[in-house]
Structures are given as C-alpha cells and as structure tokens.
Design a protein around this nucleic acid. Sequence first.
DNA 1: TGCCTTGTTATGCGGTTGCATAATTCATAG
DNA 2: CTATGAATTATGCAACCGCATAACAAGGCA
Lengths: 224, 224
Amino acid sequence: MALDRKPYRREAEDKRRQALVDATLAMVAEGGAQSATVRAIAQRAGVTAGLIRHYFQSKDQLVTAAYRHLMDRMTAESSAVLSAAPRDPLARLTAFVAASLKPPVVDPEALILWATFLQETHRDPAMKATHAQTYLGFRDMLQALIAALPGERDEVSQRRLAIACNAVIDGLWMEGCLLPEAFARGELVSIGVTSVGAILGIDLAQHLHLADPNPSEPVPDAAS
Amino acid sequence: MALDRKPYRREAEDKRRQALVDATLAMVAEGGAQSATVRAIAQRAGVTAGLIRHYFQSKDQLVTAAYRHLMDRMTAESSAVLSAAPRDPLARLTAFVAASLKPPVVDPEALILWATFLQETHRDPAMKATHAQTYLGFRDMLQALIAALPGERDEVSQRRLAIACNAVIDGLWMEGCLLPEAFARGELVSIGVTSVGAILGIDLAQHLHLADPNPSEPVPDAAS
DNA sequence: TGCCTTGTTATGCGGTTGCATAATTCATAG
DNA sequence: CTATGAATTATGCAACCGCATAACAAGGCA
C-alpha cells in the first residue's frame, strides 16, 4: 500500500501558467495541434494533466492564451528592432525589413505555430480578434515607417504601399520558413530590402550594411 | 428483428473517391482538422464510415489525397488563365498576377485549407513533397513569364525577381483571404500588378484592362 | 429468373481524449 | 511544532477516435 506519489514544488501562479503556455507552444511546434493533448502538454511542463484545469477553465482557454502569447512575442520582436534602429528613416525601414526576414522571426517552428492557430482563428472570435489586431498592427508599423520617408505621399498612397510592402515581407517570410535550405544566407534579406525599395521607388540596399553590420547571425544572447 | 438498413446505390470508384475527397475538404474548411473525423467525412459524403477503408488504406491516405487535389485545383486555376491569355508577354504576366489575386483563388476557405494541411506537411513526407512541388511549380511559372519579358536578364536575376514577385502575390493572397472586407473590389489586383511592375521596373498597370475586361466579377457559371 | 461478386452497411473493440472528482502533500501562519 | 488551506497528484469516466470484421444487398451476368 506504500503509494509513492510524484514529489512536487508549489510555484507562483504566473510561473505555472507561463510554463503551461510554453509547453503548449512547444508541443504544437513539434507535432502539430493533434499532438498537443492535455496529457502531453502537462508532461512537457513537468506537471500532471489535472493541473491544467486548475489554471485554465478548459483546454481551449489554454490554447487561446498560448496564441496570444505567441502573437505578443512576435510583435515585441518587431518593435524591439525599431527601438534599437537608427534615426534616419531610410535606415530605420531597412533595419525593420531586414529583421523580419531572418531569425528569430524567420523560423520553421514559427510558421507551423502560425498556421496551426490560423484555423482556430476561423472558429474562435477571441482568437480572430487577436489575429486581426496583430496583423494590422504590423502593417501600421510599416505604414508609419513609410510615412516618415522623405518625399510627399498622401495617405491613400501610404496605405497601398504599406499593403504591398507587408505582402512582400510576409511572402518572403513564408518561403524562408518553409524552405530554409532553398535560400543562401542573407538572400532573403537582400531580396526583401531590394523589393521594398523598388516598390517605394527608393534605393534601400545602400543602407543595409549600416542598419545591420551582421546580417546573417542572430543575436548570441538567445535564451536567458 | 426487422432491421431496416440504409438503402444505397453502388457508384463508380472515381465518383466515390472524389466524393470522399470533397467531403474531407469541406469538413476541414468548416471546422478545422479536428472536426474531419472519418465518421463526419463519411456522413458528409452520404455514406457510412466503413466505406472509407474500402477506398483508402487509412485516413491519412485520404487526407493526403485531399491535399493533393486541393493543390492541383489551385495550380490549375492559375495556369488556366495562361492558356486563355494573350500573347504579349506584358499582358500575360499581368493576367497571371491578376487572376491570382481574385476569386476563386482568393478565398477564405482556401487559406484555411492551406494552413491546416501545412502542419501535416511538417510530419508527413508525402505531403511535404506535394507541397514543395506545388510551391516551386508556381514560382517557376512566374519565372518563365518574367524570362519572356522584353529586356535582358541573367538567370540569377530572374530567380531573384521571381522570388520577390511570388512573395508579393502570396502575401496579398493571404491578406485577401484573411481580411476580405479590408479591401475594396479590385484593390488587391491593382496593388499586386503595380507592385510586381515596380519590382520588375516596368509598367504593368496599363495592361490590366486589356488582360482582364472584368476585374472584379468571378465567372458567373460557378456551380453546375 | 436466379446466382455471385463486391460495394456498402452494421457492429464491435482497443486506445485516447478532455474533464470531473477525490486523495494527498507542500508551504505558510500562528 | 502543529494546523489549515490550497496547489498538485491520482483515479475514474463518458465520449469519441481510427480501424477491423462480419453481415447484407445491389446490380451485372448466365
């Protein structure tokens, strides 16, 4: 009758919720949505399945929270680039485009996560709202960068240009995530910066080395 | 003891397989992958679940067949435009871009289906091969159109330009599928043609009305 | 008309999933 | 040092999943 239960430690609520969210994203990234069962997620987080229900009313709520966290992270990665970018509008735009087309933004796992949650978006209004917000947020960021460029452009033109530039970036991002071996180092960045420049009628390529002295290596201080 | 079985009709193999594939796509489009169970698919196709195993060795094979059918359909819709397009290279490219950015290619269901199968791609080698084949096939089509344009371009440039133009089209396609209400009629086509022209350094917009006299209306003979 | 192949239905099984609930152990307060 | 509450584990359950197999009937062929 000597039941040896699994020993455990009590953790702060924030920590446990975060651990469960991280485990959810990890499971989805590795094996798709179907492998992200409550049991698998819990095991990944180092807890038992029942605990999920203690922090989330249902599995769907956990998934929604994970999606929101993912989107927040991607948005944060984008704006982080801007805060560290130079002041010259041309260099700023170049740095933004370049950062969007290399790791950690370009990442096979990121696309899997994005695609997996996209179908949930179709059903769950909360996730749909999160999606639209993030999506248009990125485009607005781009439009602001375009508006700051030298030269006169009315707002209608700015919007059209932002839509076009956003599309190039998204398309290249997808290709880079799906077929990472199909492109040479820095090729996506080069194509992206050149194309955005062509759409806007300016030469951005000359700002590439200024905006980013080390175009192929991700920041080395990756995880804390 | 009077068991009244469901009455049925025997059908040709092609018809039944196609019906099952169509039902699979319909279920995935409506409720995501998780709602596409063998029972639901069979019910949608008007048969019982056991029949699936009579035509496919497993559910995975049915899903793979459905994915291949979807990709073939999308590719066919794009290349169909080319066979009816004029001979002038500029007009041909314009028609191709325009057709890729309006119905039936741009369609919310299409994106959901694409995104859903994308995660399977990550696991199943057969689906990954189908994906890469379709993906690069579309880009090669684009590169051939670019190569036919007036002006000298070496193959390296052609490849880079094809990658960039493909990215714009993909990105706009995604936005159009995700937020159909965010764009005016014909706006995506207009932006796409203008942007592709800008990337290639030529003016395509003037060929838009020639290439497609009715840019916003899908063909009216939709379903038979 | 009557048989015979096989397309189709019907039924059942082992495994898994999300969720509910009871049992237990950790951490803190007094 | 002990008591109390809550975080965590453990157990169980109803529903559902894909798949196997057996029973049946539809339609061609003699």
